[in-house]
């Protein structure tokens, strides 16, 4: 994989989210955005100015945010409920479970500043539970775009989806992650960014970028990696998962989430039940009081970095060869 494949940009996925919603609202008066004093962090100030009627503000009241969004969606509004992922998927979990998922009101829940994006603000502001919690709720999809174009495509998909969707992303500027330049986001289908037969690295969201950096490093050690942006965590692309697990010597999953209940365990459960036995490692945040620091410091601490992923890959392949 060539160096120019990772283009740095100054645009976060949150910026792209708001830009895409503005584009959709320009031609669709049914687009409604609901915020809980979260328009600033959601980059939605401009949306509110351009479409004041289509922006509903409920104040700092996340349960109400989701209940109101469900009511709007039940009346045909294409509704985005936007709030930091930590609050959205914990404070209003029952509203998500009952009012959105069980009642099938097709709200798009947008968890912003997700994972450990808030860094040193600490665990109250981290969302390391959201995949696990929502995977166990029937009738909601979970989409975690890695870069700007996956985000734009996911937002457009979710706006017109007739079942609930949880979109989750962070707030830092994201590089464009693509090999061919073809922006081939497809809901429910993992995106293979680069291919190699030694190890499959299955990542999501902001962890895809360090996975690609690691793949480049591994190539210099003659270890060839497949890197997948598994942006749709539920429903999981089990065909792609089985295919790379059958062709590679090892599989690593990476997520900015607890190692419990997220992408890694979803992959492990599928592979084991299919009788596909492969050297396997889940990278994420362990079950402990999360180390304090910036987002990058926290991710580095837990090995979610170029060098951390290289080390994990080398160890896993060595183990397998023993």
């Amino acid at each position: 994989m060539a160096d120019q494949n990772i283009h740095t940009t100054s645009t976060s996925n949150q910026d792209i989210f708001s830009k895409t919603v503005e584009q959709l609202a320009a031609t669709d008066t049914n687009i409604v955005v609901v915020t809980s004093d979260s328009r600033g962090s959601g980059k939605l100030v401009s949306f509110g100015q351009k479409f004041p009627d289509q922006h509903i503000e409920v104040g700092i009241a996340e349960q109400n945010l989701v209940g109101v969004a469900a009511g709007l969606a039940s009346c045909g509004k294409k509704t985005f409920a936007v709030s930091p992922a930590c609050f959205l998927t914990a404070r209003s979990f029952e509203q998500i479970k009952n009012d959105v998922a069980y009642s099938n009101n097709p709200v798009t829940l947008v968890g912003i500043s997700a994972g450990v994006s808030y860094g040193a603000l600490g665990s109250t502001h981290h969302s390391l539970h959201d995949f696990a919690a929502l995977r166990a709720v029937n009738n909601i999809s979970i989409v975690v775009p890695a870069d700007n174009f996956e985000t734009a495509a996911a937002v457009a998909y979710a706006a017109n989806c007739n079942t609930p969707v949880y979109l989750r992303f962070g707030k830092k500027a994201m590089p464009h992650l693509q090999e061919t330049g073809k922006e081939n986001f497809e809901f429910g289908k993992g995106r293979v960014i680069t291919s190699g037969a030694d190890i499959a690295i299955i990542a999501c969201g902001e962890t895809v970028a360090p996975a690609l950096e690691a793949a480049k490093k591994l190539a210099t050690q003659n270890i060839h990696a497949t890197v997948i942006s598994m942006h749709t965590i539920k429903p999981l692309d089990t065909n792609l998962l089985a295919s790379v697990a059958n062709t590679c010597k090892a599989v690593i999953t990476i997520e900015e989430h607890s190692v419990y209940g997220g992408l890694g365990e979803a992959c492990a459960a599928y592979l084991l039940q299919q009788g596909i036995h492969v050297a396997f490692k889940i990278m994420g945040i362990p079950d402990e009081y999360t180390v304090t620091g910036s987002q990058t410091e926290i991710l580095n601490h837990y090995g979610i970095s170029e060098s951390g992923i290289v080390d994990a890959a080398v160890r896993l392949i060595q183990q397998k060869e023993k």
């Binding site: 289509q54 109101v68 709007l72 039940s74």
Partner: peptide
């Protein structure tokens, strides 16, 4: 109209419906 049972859920949903009517 809606699946209910957990308490304190009806009014927020109705607020969303009432806003939709106004819109």
């Amino acid at each position: 109209e809606q699946n209910t049972g957990a308490l304190g859920h009806g009014l927020p949903i109705c607020v969303g419906m009432a806003i939709a009517a106004k819109l």
